[in-house]
């Protein structure tokens, strides 16, 4: 079976770029909550990760 990397943030989706800095993964900026939810859903399905919510306007996709 193919080897996969887990325990890794695959992408960060946020409405507020000030809350995020640096990091080794792409950051997607959304204009509002609705777009953030939609982009997160699409990214999680494409990347095969789980969406987590930091409850401050930042979502991230994590592969467990």
């Amino acid at each position: 079976m193919a080897t996969t990397i887990s325990g890794l943030i695959l992408a960060i989706i946020t409405t507020d770029l000030n809350k995020v800095s640096g990091g080794g993964c792409p950051v997607f900026v959304a204009k509002d909550n609705e777009e953030m939810e939609k982009v997160s859903l699409l990214l999680s399905r494409i990347l095969g990760g789980v969406i987590h919510d930091l409850e401050n306007g930042v979502y991230f996709i994590f592969r467990h």
Binding site: E37, S40, L41, V50, I51, H52, D53, Y59, F60
Partner: peptide, 8 residues
């Protein structure tokens, strides 16, 4: 666990 999406 932490669940991100409102729809989920």
């Amino acid at each position: 666990m932490n669940v991100g999406l409102a729809s989920t």
